[in-house]
């Protein structure tokens, strides 16, 4: 349990998907213009992360990893399908987004109206694929992975909402012309990243 919270906090603050790994930057910069839409996207990303990451963990552990197929019998002990993992992971993510979109549309129209337009954006959000790939590289166990997926989602959400809040205010500032818009967005993200680095070394 202690480890669970440790990974959760690390994923939210010190290893924030945006500030330390730059994952999901495209939608982060494109959608962070108002707080309302960024809230929607943040929730959608967290939601998809919690769904796809465990699924990919199962696929990785029982299908892709070297020796993962040993449950089929002795003959399959040495099969290593890890070279297919990119393909399988992205397919799972694309399929899940499609599925979730359809389900949400059918069963929760209100939620669909709020999140619907963001779901297609998610299939190509690097943060989602990134979590699955990090999971494979860092050899997480299942519970560690849940913490990591949840933390990454919340961290991403936190980042995009705070960015949107800053951008709403910054509209009234006098910024040098060539720096307006994208330029200042990058610099603010960098400064926020430096602030988040001060969580480094936090221990629970």
């Amino acid at each position: 349990m202690e480890n669970f919270f440790n990974i959760l906090i690390k994923a939210i603050f010190t290893g924030n998907m945006i500030f330390s790994f730059f994952l999901g930057m495209c939608s982060y910069l494109a959608v962070s213009k108002t707080i309302k839409t960024s809230m929607g996207l943040g929730v959608a990303v967290t939601f998809m992360l919690v769904i796809t990451a465990p699924l990919n963990w199962l696929l990785n552990t029982y299908l892709l990893k070297a020796g993962a197929l040993s449950w089929l019998g002795e003959n399959y002990k040495d099969v290593d399908l890890s070279y297919l993992s990119f393909m399988i992971f992205i397919a799972t993510i694309a399929a899940m987004t499609q599925l979730v979109e359809m389900m949400v549309e059918k069963f929760a129209p209100a939620l669909y109206n709020a999140l619907g337009i963001f779901l297609p954006l998610i299939a190509v959000n690097c943060a989602i694929l990134g979590v699955s790939l990090f999971m494979q590289e860092r050899e997480y166990t299942f519970s560690e992975l849940l913490a990591f997926a949840l933390g990454s989602g919340i961290g991403w959400w936190l980042a995009i909402v705070s960015m949107a809040a800053i951008r709403e205010k910054i509209r009234y500032s006098n910024i040098p012309k060539p720096l307006q818009g994208l330029g200042i967005a990058f610099i603010i993200t960098g400064l926020m990243g430096i602030a988040f680095m001060s969580f480094m070394g936090i221990k629970i």
Binding site: P178, L179, G183, G190, G193, M197
Partner: peptide
């Protein structure tokens, strides 16, 4: 450290747009 990459890009954009 990672944040400096972002700031560097911000500066590149600044130069390019100037």
């Amino acid at each position: 450290l990672p944040p400096m990459a972002l700031i560097t890009i911000g500066v590149i954009i600044w130069v390019q747009r100037s």
